[in-house]
Structure formats: C-alpha cells, structure tokens
Amino acid sequence: MVYQILIVVALRLLLLAPLVIALAACDGSRQPVSASVSVAEAMSGDTVGYARADRVRDFVFPEDHGPHPAFKAEWWYVTGNVRATDGTDRRFGIQFTVFRSALAPDTVGARESGWGANQLYMAHTAIGDLEAERFYDEERFSRGAAGLAGASSDPVAAFLGPVRLEATGPADGPVPIRLTGSADGAAFDLEAEPVKPIVFQGDRGLSQKGAGEGNASYYYAQTRMATTGTITIGGEAIPVEGLTWLDREWSTSALSENQVGWDWFALHLDDGRDLMLYQLRQTDGTKDPLSKGSLVLEDGTKIHLDSGMYSLEPLATWSSPLGGDYPTRWRLRVPDQGIDLEVEAAFDEQELDATVRYWEGSVVVTGSAAGVGFLEMTGYADGLEGNARPTPTL
C-alpha cells in the first residue's frame, strides 16, 4: 500500500531468507516457496539498530529516488491502467513492485563474501487483461548483488533481474521512468512521464502507520504519470497508453497489536483529481484512527484527509478459490469534497498467490466522478495456504 506498503511481504522475505539464499545457491531452477503467515506476524520483526521514520525531514532528489539501506524495508511501487491504441480498445491493469529488505542493521558492517549480501530483494509483477479477465502475476527473489538485484540514485534505478525501473530524464524532482518486466509469460515495456509535482503524503512525507515513535514511513508519490509503451501477451505486442502512479516508501515499522491488515485505494478521476485513501483494519473490524489519505487536485495541490473525513463501505465480496473473502465493490465517500463513489473490481480474480497472498488489481470508478484506479487488500487470507506456484530465484 502505499502503506503499499506491502511491507508485510518485504518483511516476510526476512523470515524466508535462509530458504531463498539456499535456492539461489542451487542450480537456478524454479522451486516452490510456500507460506501461511498473518500480516501481523510478518510485521513483528526486530527493529533494533535500524533507522526509524520518527520526525519530519527534508527530501532531497535525486538521492531520495534511490535506496535507504539504513532502514529495514523499502519499495518502488507503480500501478496503473492502460488502453490499447491499435483500435481494439483492450484494457490492462499493471503492477510493478521492487522491495528491498535488510537482513541486519548496516552497523553490522560489510561482509566479504558475495553471498553475504546484507540486502535481499523481491519483485512482484502483474498484468490484468480486463476484457479476457485473465490475471498474470509473478514473484521473484534475489540477494542484492551486482547484476542480480539492486537500486541506485545515480542513475535512478531499482531492479531484480528483468524487472527494472530506470530514470529516462532529469531526477532532481518528479522523475520520468521506464518500466520493464514480465509475469507468467506476459510482459510490459512502458515509459511514464509525471504531469504533476511530487506529493508528500502524511505530514510533509512522514506517514504514521502505528502507535509509538518510529512506526511510520517516509512516503512520497508521483500520483499521475502519462504512460505509453507495449503490453505483450501470447507473443503479441500491443501498443498502449494510459496513466500510472508511483509510490515510494521506506520504513522500519511494525503494525500495532490490534492491526490486522489494510485496504488501500489509488484512483485517477477523469476530472484530473487523484485520490489516495487507506484504512488500517483493527481486530474488531473498525478503522484505525491512524488511517488517512489525500486528494490531489488537477493543479497538484494536495488536500490532506484524516480518518474521520472519509468512509469506506464494502458492498460485495469475492471468495477466492484458495480461501479468503475479499470485498471487491465499495462505496467511498469524502463528504467535505462532495465525493461519493462506487469502486468496483474490473474483474474479481486479481489475487496474487505470492509468499503472502493478497488482492491487488484494477478497479473502475463511478458515481460523483468517473475514473479508474487500483485497490490493494491484505489480511483477508491470513493463515490460509495458496497454491505456492514456483518462484524464480536469482
């Protein structure tokens, strides 16, 4: 989430580290990795010795487009909706995420062996073919090593094997990027140009997620990027255009004891506004007061939204064949802004059967405004095994 944070998955990588390294050390073949861990368990790791997001800071670019290894977890996250320009009008949802996760505080010092890398990387990629209702997704792991996986600020890049984000222009502010990746036989090659200023979420980029000092992330976004390129499915390269959204977060954080998951929305409205909201769900089903969001106007002005300024009401639920029930149609209201929307999955089967299962997919917006966007839901399949499909390791 934004909390895309999918930090749950990044920290789960720590728990799987010995297995991942063992697989990578073998013959490179695709091996199954399975897990049944709750969001709360995955986010309960040790935070001692790591830097914490515990105060408002100045952001500096291009440095902050790159990695922050003193923090435990970090991610480069892009979602969006594109449409074919070849006359077929086919529509696709895109997810690109590269996670960096530290195995130990950098105070431990460098290790001489290349196999002793202190950083592990994970990538999640997905392509939703909305008309065919076909979902392609893939998960990859690698240790941080030259040529395998890594991130940098000069030039701006984050990659794991063929899954790559690279700057295509000046990076001293909003950065134009190229995204490449593949998922279960499908692929994308996209270029995205920011059309709005950088948005600093939360309090000037400090986004509190849990009770206690340091249970927060540094978080900024490029909420609207004009995007062109190709989607390749079944060997056919389809020219596309549309909008994508970049989120950048780094953190050494943990869920509070009463938090069990979240629902996160990133919406591109046709009138030029961008809306991000998330609710942290508590054990009793209520919304944590630390939930928040933002409305970004057409000119880039940000309006901060506290938890009491919006409501989310599930209207319909999809039952995954792997177990777990996800709300895939919602009513979303921001009364002070005259916003009353229905947000519905473009199709229901957009669940990633990854190390930790979650739902992440394209949605359609109707009501007081029209648009498209992305929805992420975690914590609905906790403790339930998936199919544990083969996971590429590098």
Rank of each mutant, 00 (worst) to 15 (best):
A316V: 03
Q31P: 10
W250M: 03
F99W: 03
P170Q: 14
D274F: 02
R333S: 10
A183F: 06
L246D: 13
A226P: 08
E131Q: 15
G214P: 08
R273S: 00
T393F: 01
Y278W: 07
G242P: 03
E41N: 12
L312I: 03
V9A: 10
L120E: 00
G169F: 12
G293C: 04
A370S: 14
Y380W: 00
A237Y: 13
V372T: 11
V364Y: 09
G80I: 06
F200V: 07
S291P: 07
F347I: 05
A102L: 07
T391Q: 06
A171Q: 14
V365W: 05
G361H: 00
Y219Q: 00
F200D: 01
Q350N: 08
D348T: 05
G109I: 03
G272A: 02
W330F: 04
V98K: 05
A22I: 04
A221K: 05
Q337I: 02
P176N: 13
E349A: 15
D203I: 06
S101D: 10
L312D: 01
G214H: 06
Y121G: 10
L179P: 04
L103E: 11
A104P: 11
R57Q: 08
A237Q: 14
K209F: 12
Y136Q: 12
V2E: 01
D129N: 12
A388Q: 11
P327T: 08
D184C: 11
L277Q: 02
V199M: 09
F135W: 09
P239N: 02
P390H: 10
G367T: 03
E133W: 00
P314V: 05
S307W: 08
L6E: 06
